[in-house]
Simulated scan of single mutants.
Amino acid sequence: MKRIVLAAACLIVVATVLQALFDYSRLRDRQLFGHLVHRIDTDRPVVALTLDDGPTRRFTAPLLDILDKAGVTATFFLTGREVTAFPEGAQAVVDAGHEVGNHSWNHRRMVAMTPWEVRRQLRETDAAIRALGYEGPLHFRPPYGRKLVVLPWVLARQDRTTIMWSVEPETDLAFDAPPQDLAAHVIETTQAGDIILLHGMYSGNDSSRAALPLIIAGLRARGFDFVTVSELIALEAAR
């Protein structure tokens, strides 16, 4: 009986530790090593709009068209595999003057990856983006926002900033929430210095694409300007 109780207690401890590690890996505002930015403290009415994944043949152009018509420069976190599969789309993002970041090679969760595999994911995605002629900074955003020990350690060794976010309507509501609801959530909750996360590269992101012009118009009506992630970081560095 004592062995059964001890085994059960051990299982509870292990489950508790695993849950704690899982929860920590998802935190937006901290990691074990290196520099992480999820927003900045500023009195200036500026926000950074970020778009994850892609490029894709069907939906990169519509996103770029929305941003172009609104005169907004965003930060795109692209995957190396998709950049290589559709370089024309990635080139269009660069040519439109948007900032580009590294979002891994194939969007696998990187929490349990070896240091070698993390470095390979970073290196090959960097190379795919640089092949487009992009010369700007290459910040990194972890797939699904997950990071624990190895990934932040490698990023810190490379003096690389992890970019997370502070406004996430698709998770706070749902990916298929009505566009008006997604937009209202962003417009009502965004504060100066926030980093907004949206997706729009796939067929399941119809609501987000439809919400994007509403978000831009609503935030501008509140007096916000849009900057890239690097511009946002520079504001904090200048304080």
Score class of each variant (00 low, 15 high):
Met1Cys: 05
Leu11Phe: 11
Val13Asn: 14
Val17Thr: 14
Ala20Ser: 15
Ser25Tyr: 15
Leu27His: 13
Leu27Asn: 12
Asp29Gly: 09
Asp29Lys: 10
Gln31His: 11
His35Gly: 02
Leu36Gln: 06
Leu36Asn: 05
Asp41Gly: 03
Ala48Cys: 12
Asp52Lys: 07
Asp52Phe: 06
Gly54Ile: 02
Arg58Ile: 01
Ala61Tyr: 07
Pro62Gln: 08
Asp65Leu: 04
Ile66Asn: 04
Ala70Asp: 13
Thr73His: 10
Thr75Ser: 14
Phe76Asp: 08
Phe76Ser: 07
Leu78Ala: 08
Arg81His: 06
Glu88Cys: 00
Gly89Met: 03
Ala92His: 00
Asp95His: 09
Asp95Gln: 12
Asp95Trp: 03
Gly101Pro: 06
Gly101Ser: 12
Ser104Pro: 02
Ser104Met: 04
Trp105Phe: 10
Asn106Glu: 11
His107Lys: 09
Arg108Gln: 12
Arg109Thr: 10
Arg109Tyr: 08
Val111Pro: 00
Ala112Tyr: 08
Met113Leu: 13
Glu117Arg: 08
Glu117Thr: 02
Arg120Trp: 12
Ala128Asn: 09
Arg130Pro: 00
Ala131Phe: 07
Gly133His: 00
Leu138Arg: 01
Pro142Gln: 04
Trp153Gln: 13
Trp153Leu: 15
Arg157His: 13
Asp159Lys: 13
Val167Arg: 03
Pro169Tyr: 10
Glu170Gln: 14
Glu170Ile: 10
Asp172Thr: 11
Leu173Val: 12
Leu173Thr: 11
Ala177Arg: 12
Pro178Phe: 12
Ile187Met: 02
Thr189Asp: 01
Gln191Met: 04
Ala192Val: 09
Ile196Pro: 01
Leu198His: 02
Gly200Leu: 07
Ser203Arg: 15
Asn205Asp: 15
Arg209Trp: 05
Leu214Met: 15
Asp225Phe: 02
Val229Tyr: 04
Leu232Tyr: 01
Ala234Asp: 15
Leu235Pro: 00
